[in-house]
């Protein structure tokens, strides 16, 4: 993998508590799976950095290699890979996501 891409990923997931690698932007997601994760995070009022991999082919390939995960979206919390859409959705529904965010000291409101 391109060294600059790897460094950029490391920097992004270190400098931001919650990072979502996605297709499109949080305001205009370009894929239903990315949109679903945005919806969960927004619903919980979690501040996150959305990174659109569609505008950067090197990053699009690079993030898959970096995480060893073949699909987008990918959610990182405090520098750790949490999962893709299925995992985020499962953890949200079971309440584990709110719990994990609380443990990591990230502001979120429990789903109403």
């Amino acid at each position: 993998m391109d060294k600059t891409v790897e460094e950029r990923i490391r920097r992004d997931i270190t400098e931001n508590d919650v990072v979502l690698y996605m297709k499109g932007t949080p305001v205009f997601p370009q894929c239903g799976f990315s949109a679903a994760v945005v919806q969960v995070l927004s619903h919980l009022g979690v501040k996150f950095k959305g990174i659109d991999i569609l505008v950067d082919p090197a990053l699009r390939q690079g993030i898959k290699e970096f995480t060893n995960w073949p699909t987008i979206p990918q959610l990182y919390v405090k520098g750790e890979f949490l999962g893709g859409c299925d995992i985020v959705r499962d953890m949200y529904e079971s309440g584990e996501l709110v719990q994990l965010l609380a443990e990591k000291g990230i502001a979120a409101q429990a789903a109403a």
Binding site: F33, N68, W69, P70, T71, F81, L82, G83, G84, C85, D86, I87, D90, M91
Partner: peptide, 26 residues
């Protein structure tokens, strides 16, 4: 969860590379 999905992705890596665009897993 991550390890489980990685296991499945690894088994299906050819299919993902060739054609399958989205694989929702339980």
């Amino acid at each position: 969860r991550v390890a489980r999905q990685r296991l499945v992705y690894d088994i299906l890596k050819d299919e993902l590379a060739e054609r399958v665009h989205a694989l929702s897993l339980k």
